[in-house]
Design a protein around this nucleic acid. Structure first.
Length: 595
RNA sequence: GGGGGUGUAGCUCAGUUGGUUAGAGCGAUCGCCUGUCACGCGAUAGGUCGAGGGUUCGAGUCCCUUCACUCCCGCCA
């Protein structure tokens, strides 16, 4: 028999009545009645109420003991009387009468209470993460994360994928995010980089003939943090397949996500077959390439209305003549909303840096004529209103919010407004997951500052269309087999069918300003491998942390990360990053520049 | 790099128009209490009001500077 326990703290039931047991765990809570003491003993599995009275010689010692001390108790299980059963816990029908106990791990006065639903400052939670992780909600989140990863791994293996590890110390790449660098001792002055993703390696795995690969892969990017973005490191389900087209990848991923989300959440899936939305359509209808499809509001472009002679909204008309566009959002049946509802949204838009949102409501007057009610309604005669209604599917009683500006600013403000208005009108069903694919990303985009052409996503993506018919003269028109998976407005994943043809790759890199020599030098491993018989291949890499975040219904990625860093990329518990000794620096041929 | 929010007891927070000795709950310590499960009751200790400077007869409160944490923008192929 194990000397620490015969049962865990979630095991004993009324059938155990009379059993002699040994339990070990943390003191979760004490309730001291002077001559009678209740102790809630907690371990990973649950809680068992233990009890001792003054007759026992251990009583005084246990009465003084600190919460969160680890103890072992020997005792006897007894059934609780009917009126003292606790239905909140699985062991609530019994309790253990303590006969003897032993302290296994002492506990100092706590810097934060473990038994409490209160929220605490992150700083103290991160410093004492081992205490924070004992708390119920986050403890369960971390267990969920483990189960999700196991489940995904099983599913992948079931579908014939092989799991491989790829190097953590690799080379710096010129594209993408900022690298974390590791100095090389044996190669003075040179550096390894931690992989931003195993992108090149997984392609090399395909070239090596392994057909289907996956990995729960750590990825390192030295960029600033956000609520849904850990600084430094995160995990991807990295996967790649040979001899596939885009739809083959989609099929695998959809099956995986539907199964995973059904297994770990009770929320509804809005689509079992994820809709595909082109990048262009998404930017127009939702103002974003990560639309929240739970939100029924849709953006329409009605620039043409402001070319009509009978419309007299001169501010917008002037801007339209100068090249601006007008986009709008229709809200259904909002004619009875108070003025303050509309004005609040206009005020909010101004706070977001826009010039505000104009609005009016479609009405019918007593002569059955359509009119517009609202501050700018008078500028729109009936015929113009009819045209707006047919373009936007608006009905009498609906309202319209209008924004005018340059396309990029319009996309930004209408996207934000779409979220804001839906939130105010409570249009979003929080009990739903709405997945979609965003497809047909442009291969290139124009850098607004330098005016040069650059890759808009992954330079290794395959352009669409027949290869010998691609119009390289108009690079901004070239679409790529590049796709994102989005759920509830969160970007979960990016992927692509890869370009496995070196000659085509040189052409595309040339457009982005890289010579053949540049490509040969910077991507030598890749380009070399693709020259020796590479299969067509493609893949994707869903973010594990964000998947768990959605399943755990958490807003912050640190709630599903066991030992996260803070916003300044510091580990407050381990004191990382830290200074190193002169000797270590010397070995690495490094000098620290004094300020 | 830029913008917003927060910072008061170990923890979570209150603190009015600038005005006497800065408060509460939890936790800690001590005492009372044999059926609680957020047990209850009483007492005690615990404060550089993030830091520095300024205005003022007087600053937790107003002003300036600065630090920490956090959210957002930039950034994240």
């Amino acid at each position: 028999m194990n000397k620490y326990r015969t049962h865990n703290c979630n095991e004993l039931r009324k059938d155990n009545d009379g059993d002699k047991v040994v339990l070990s765990g943390w003191i979760n809570k004490k309730r001291d009645h002077g001559n009678l003491l209740f102790i809630d003993l907690r371990d990973n599995y649950g809680i068992t109420q233990c009890i001792i009275d003054k007759e026992n010689s251990n009583f005084e010692k246990l009465e003084k003991i600190q919460l969160e001390t680890v103890i072992k108790i020997q005792g006897k299980v007894i059934k609780r009387s009917n009126d003292s059963i606790n239905k909140e816990i699985k062991t609530g029908e019994i309790e253990v009468i303590i006969q003897n106990f032993e302290v296994l791990g002492e506990c100092k006065e706590l810097p934060l209470p473990v038994f409490s639903d209160q929220e605490y400052a992150e700083e103290i939670r991160l410093k004492y993460r081992f205490l924070d992780l004992r708390r119920k909600k986050i403890h369960e989140n971390i267990i969920l994360r483990s189960k999700v990863i196991s489940f995904i791994r099983n599913e992948m293996i079931k579908h014939g994928f092989l799991e491989f590890q790829t190097p953590i110390l690799t080379s710096s790449s010129p594209e993408g995010a900022r690298d974390f660098l590791v100095p090389s001792r044996l190669n003075p002055g040179k550096f390894y980089a931690l992989p931003q993703a195993p992108q090149q390696f997984k392609q090399l795995v395909m070239v090596s003939g392994f057909d289907k690969y996956f990995q729960i892969a750590p990825c390192f990017r030295d960029e600033d943090a956000r609520a849904d973005r850990s600084p430094g490191e995160f995990y991807q389900l990295d996967l790649e397949m040979s001899f596939v087209e885009q739809d083959d990848v989609f099929k695998v991923v959809e099956t995986l996500f539907v199964n995973t989300f059904k297994e770990f959440s009770n929320k509804k899936l809005l689509f079992n077959k994820f809709p595909k939305i082109s990048y262009k359509e998404s930017m127009l209808k939702y103002g974003s390439d990560k639309p929240d499809l739970r939100n029924p509001l849709i953006i329409n472009d009605i620039t043409d209305i402001f070319l009509r002679k009978d419309v007299s909204f001169e501010i917008f008309k002037k801007l339209v003549k100068q090249g601006s566009n007008v986009r709008c959002i229709i809200t259904k049946n909002t004619k009875d909303k108070p003025r303050s509802f509309f004005d609040n949204i206009d005020k909010w838009a101004k706070e977001q840096g826009a010039s505000g949102l104009a609005y009016f409501t479609f009405e019918k007057d007593k002569d059955n004529l359509i009119s517009a009610k609202g501050p700018v309604g008078k500028f729109f005669p009936e015929e113009a209103l009819k045209e707006i209604m047919s373009k936007t599917d608006a009905k009498i009683g609906d309202s319209i919010f209008l924004a005018c500006g340059k396309q990029i600013d319009l996309e930004k403000i209408t996207s934000l407004a779409r979220d804001k208005i839906a939130k105010d009108l409570q249009l979003i069903d929080n009990n739903t997951f709405a997945f979609c694919w965003i497809v047909d990303y442009p291969m290139f985009e124009k850098d607004e500052i330098t005016k040069s052409i650059k890759f808009s996503h992954n330079p290794f993506s395959m352009p669409q269309g027949e290869i010998d018919k691609i119009d390289f003269k108009n690079p901004l028109e070239i679409l790529a087999y590049q796709y994102d998976l989005v759920c509830n407005g969160i970007e979960l994943s990016s992927g692509a069918i890869r370009n496995h043809i070196p000659s085509l790759m040189y052409k595309l890199f040339n457009i982005a300003g890289y010579s053949k020599l540049d490509v040969d030098q910077k991507f030598s491993g890749m380009i070399n491998a693709l020259s020796y018989g590479a299969p067509p291949h493609g893949g994707i890499a869903p973010g594990i942390d964000r998947i768990v975040m959605l399943l755990a219904d958490e807003k912050n990625i640190r709630e599903v990360t066991m030992f996260p860093m803070n916003q300044n990329a510091q580990d407050l518990m381990m004191n990382a990053p830290s200074n190193v000794s002169e000797n270590q620096l010397k070995e690495l041929n490094l000098l620290i520049k004094k300020k």
